[in-house]
Design a protein around this nucleic acid. Structure first.
Lengths: 196, 196
DNA sequence: AACGATACGGAACGCTGTTCCGTTTTGGCA
DNA sequence: TGCCAAAACGGAACAGCGTTCCGTATCGTT
């Protein structure tokens, strides 16, 4: 879907050699900075870490959100793919749903501040918001439907709403030892169960 | 506990007349701006609305968080007071807990962006965070304990954690018609119930 | 080797919250 | 009443953010 980038071998020349090299460097630098300083790290820090000017960063990634997307794209896709797989390997749809949500929560909690920036209503993060939603909501819907059909959970829950709720619960999960987002999400999922 | 301020009549002179007048004007202006533009409105907007300089705002309220606290103090206190009252008038502790949480959620959802800024880990909002916690966590603990003793809910839930979770769920509740924070909180509270 | 297209670096812009200080207002005291 | 230090005011200035813009350097093709 994107230019540049390839699994192995030689492929997909965007345009110029140095441009491709810089994009890769930028992605590595961003990933490194995100780990140490969180996703809210200043763009300048990433540019510095990559040894690159600000202009370069903004040519490759029109907004900071696009950079974040690029860095985590693979992991989001992996999460999306895991959904149907869990549905087949799990004993019940509800178990699959639970495990999949855990996957999602682990992902969010692991990246400092990702959940925060994800729910931020500041303009400019629309694309980030949208990417996560486009990729994951369909999967969640599938899991939710399966569990509803099996009669395990209430059937009046919207996948978008649930994902948003789970995402919200993950905000500030790091940087506060007293708050365990996983437990709260567990509670939320427990609340999903059909009343008897 | 504060200077200025009084219920009725003449009282509690902070120091100078104009100072007290400006503080009141500022509180009114802030409340008005918060309603129209949300709690994240720029300090300058509030200063302009009050017809006051930036210095004045920062003398009365050392940080923006302090201004927010001052504006909503009464309502937070009212919420805190409502806890014990509900415990007496409700049929069961669990019902009281549910109603009290509803009160809290209504409060958060009503003020645009309050929940967001409340969970923000940006330095400078520590005082805001702390005020809400100091005031409401004890109340929530009381309700939680009562419900746990009555055997209605799990007893391994911490009040701080629950409040934080509820607060998180309220983020972005306005500005997104597809997301109903109240319903998610309802789910969370349902998940609290003792299994079987 | 030369040259047009492409990409680069970083100064500059507009927006935040906050600080600082010269100026104005106030209210007790001669 | 008039004076004047103390208190409060206003807003320019600072630091830090994301983003834009453009002169300059590099690339790869002719």
């Amino acid at each position: 879907m994107n230019d540049s980038d390839n699994g192995a071998g030689h492929a997909a020349p965007s345009k110029r050699k140095d441009a491709r090299r810089n994009k890769a460097t930028l992605l590595d630098a961003a990933a490194a900075v995100f780990v140490t300083s969180g996703v809210e790290a200043p763009v300048r820090d990433i540019a510095a870490k990559a040894g690159v000017g600000l202009g370069t960063i903004y040519r490759h990634f029109p907004t900071r959100a696009d950079l974040i997307i690029a860095v985590y794209q693979h992991q989001v896709d992996a999460c999306a793919v895991a959904g149907p797989a869990l549905l087949e390997t799990s004993p019940t749809p509800h178990a699959a749903l639970g495990q999949w949500i855990n996957l999602f929560v682990d992902f969010l909690v692991t990246k400092h501040g990702l959940a925060t920036v994800l729910q931020s209503d500041n303009t400019g993060f629309d694309t980030l918001h949208a990417y996560f939603l486009d990729r994951l909501v369909p999967v969640c819907t599938q899991l939710l439907d399966a569990a509803a059909v099996a009669g395990e959970i209430r059937s009046d829950i919207d996948a978008y709403e649930l994902m948003r709720g789970v995402g919200n619960l993950c905000i500030g999960a790091d940087s506060d030892p007293r708050y365990d987002a996983r437990r709260m999400v567990e509670l939320l999922i427990a609340g999903l169960r059909r009343p008897h």
